Simulated assay, not measured.
Amino acid sequence: MHEVALATQLSHVVARHAEGRRVCAVDIEVGALRQVVPATLAYAWRFVVKDTVLQDAQLNITWVDAEIACSSGHHTRLDATDYLDVRCPTCASPTTVIAGEEFRVIDIEVDLS
């Protein structure tokens, strides 16, 4: 369960950037190709931040579907539950991943009072 390790590292990043301010919410994007289960990450977050300065911080996860593009210009969104084929489903050309590898913090909401 690497979600615990991800939640731990995420909490370190958030705490460092919050600079001692109370964190209300953390918004992140997680790509389908990152092999992260959002519900498990959310649970791990609650476990990791318990009894810390981040304990009240809500973790908001936005899921980013995988998307590929081939040299012919076709773009295809991949369903994460399907087998991920690296060929274009339209023309069978090799593809490049253009979305789905994200794991990034979008916003940290802090209490300024």
Rank of each mutant, 00 (worst) to 15 (best):
G20Y: 08
G20S: 05
G20F: 07
G20Q: 03
R21V: 03
R21I: 04
R21S: 09
R21A: 09
R21Y: 08
R21G: 03
R22W: 03
R22L: 10
R22H: 11
R22S: 11
R22P: 05
R22C: 08
V23P: 01
V23F: 04
V23G: 04
V23I: 09
C24M: 10
C24L: 13
C24W: 05
A25Q: 12
A25G: 04
A25W: 09
V26W: 05
D27C: 09
D27E: 10
D27W: 07
D27G: 01
D27M: 01
D27P: 03
D27F: 09
I28A: 02
I28R: 05
I28H: 02
E29L: 06
E29G: 02
E29V: 03
V30G: 02
V30I: 09
V30P: 01
G31N: 03
G31Y: 02
A32S: 12
A32C: 07
L33R: 10
L33M: 06
L33S: 08
L33T: 06
R34N: 03
R34D: 00
R34G: 00
R34H: 00
Q35D: 13
V36T: 04
V36N: 01
V36D: 00
V36Y: 00
V37P: 01
V37L: 05
P38G: 11
P38C: 07
P38W: 08
P38L: 08
A39E: 15
A39T: 13
T40M: 07
T40D: 09
T40S: 14
T40N: 04
T40E: 06
L41R: 01
L41Y: 02
L41E: 02
A42G: 13
A42K: 14
A42Y: 07
Y43R: 14
Y43Q: 13
Y43G: 14
A44M: 08
A44V: 05
A44Q: 01
A44F: 06
A44L: 11
A44D: 08
A44G: 07
W45I: 06
W45Y: 05
R46E: 15
R46H: 14
R46K: 15
R46G: 11
F47Y: 14
F47Q: 14
F47G: 06
V48L: 12
V48F: 11
V48R: 03
V49S: 01
V49D: 03
V49K: 01
K50H: 15
D51H: 15
D51Q: 15
D51M: 11
D51A: 15
D51Y: 12
T52G: 12
T52D: 13
T52C: 14
T52W: 13
V53M: 13
V53W: 10
L54Q: 10
L54E: 08
